[in-house]
Amino acid sequence: MSFRITGLPAEPFTDLFSLSDEALAARLAVRVVADHAHGYPCRISLTDAEPGQPLILLNYEHQPADSPFRSRYAIYIREGEQQYDEVDRVPDQLRRRLLSVRGFDGRGMLRDADVAQGTALEPLIERLFDDDHVAYLHIHMARPGCYAARVDRA
């Protein structure tokens, strides 16, 4: 089964990079600088920031469904990134992590969920999409629990 993984679109975040620290704080966001590799995953490009690269850490509503599963959490974004949007390809950022994958129906209700190493993501995507009621998947970094990407049938 073909699948499509997407990061977040860059446009809604563009203005954040020009805001003062006080204005960012009012939006529940802060400026940070990556201090080690593979610890600052950009949710737009689905790539990891290199040490020394600036990012913005913000609170983001990744599951806006009108259901008990509506959810928001902290995410990192980097300036100047392009949205990841690929079919049948898992980005390296996801491959190197333990992932929690959650399958939601069209009403935003959780149908199924499981955990897998990123190196074993495709079989889990296929298993969750075997349920015709699953409309889309959300991938989360399993340890910190933060939203990573969306998966749709291609």
Rank of each mutant, 00 (worst) to 15 (best):
R89S: 10
G145R: 08
G39V: 01
A65G: 03
S45M: 05
Q117R: 13
D130F: 05
D112V: 09
Q53K: 12
R78A: 12
R4V: 00
P54K: 02
T6S: 09
Y60G: 09
L110G: 04
D66K: 02
L57K: 11
L28P: 06
D35M: 09
A74F: 08
L46V: 11
R4C: 01
A74T: 12
I5T: 08
L24K: 07
P9N: 05
L137K: 05
P68N: 02
H138A: 04
R107N: 11
R27L: 15
Q63T: 06
L16C: 09
A26T: 00
L99G: 01
E86T: 02
L99K: 04
R97P: 07
L16I: 08
P12R: 03
L16Q: 08
A23T: 04
V151C: 05
L58P: 07
V30D: 13
M141W: 13
A148W: 05
R150M: 11
I139S: 08
V33L: 02
F129R: 04
S100C: 12
V151Q: 05
A148F: 06
I125W: 00
I56V: 14
A25M: 10
L24G: 01
D66G: 01
T119G: 15
Q117I: 02
R27C: 07
A116V: 15
E122Q: 14
P64F: 08
M109K: 09
